[in-house]
Design a protein around this nucleic acid. Sequence first.
DNA 1: ATGACGGTGTGGCACCGA
Length: 261
Amino acid sequence: MKIATWNVNSLAIRLPQVVEWLSAHPVDLLCLQELKLTEDKFPLEALQAAGYGHCAVFGQKTYNGVAILSRHPLENVHRNIAGFEDEQARVVAATVHTPAGPLRVVNGYFVNGQAPGSDKFAYKMRWLDGLRQWLAAEMSLGAPLVLVGDFNITADDRDTHDPEGLRETIHHTSEEREQFQALLSLGLVDAFRLFEQPEKSYSWWDYREMAFRRNKGLRIDHILVSQALQPRVRSCVIDRAPRKNERPSDHTPVVVELDLG
DNA sequence: ATGACGGTGTGGCACCGA
């Protein structure tokens, strides 16, 4: 089973690139963030034609919006964080059945947070608190779980091109990294770090100042798996290729392969 | 360098992202 996550920064603009990528990488599940469209504008037919006939969509006009594209039926679809009031469409979860049993998939577009001390940063912290509490309940149900998405957090200094210059700035603060560790403390593992990875591996690069060509990026798109799945993780890679497209998203896909029999 | 680049909206720029 292959699961990918990709912040596409507008599905309306990026749909051709998504379809092209799926034809070359026919993953079982593709979790998208920043759809920037409402559900009535979701390109269901094009994705069905690409083999993704089962989609869990949570859209919103202009901002945010998440979806799980699947080759397999999805059950128990849940939108946003249970127990946390949120006007923004940032989370969609679903259960997919595998030969090894049900797998819970949670796809999140985490809050950006703008700057430490801002109202948006406070919202980010509250949102992360709510997510963690809900995930604790989800995990207590017993099914293995995968948490994917645009976390908008660098887990540690390896995840940033400038650890000194960006210390304690947004995506790099101690508070955000403590929240990331608190998610791991629920019993989750960073699938990417289970493997030896190239130095300076990032998943996002600013559109400005030729950041991609200079590899001035951040690793902020993550795939966490519950500990029971750790021995089942066969690979976890960042696919930089779509960032070289014309009119690319500023993020690029991350893919995990699970051996579930 | 409170900028750059790119997306959205009902726009002539402002807001947001990271």
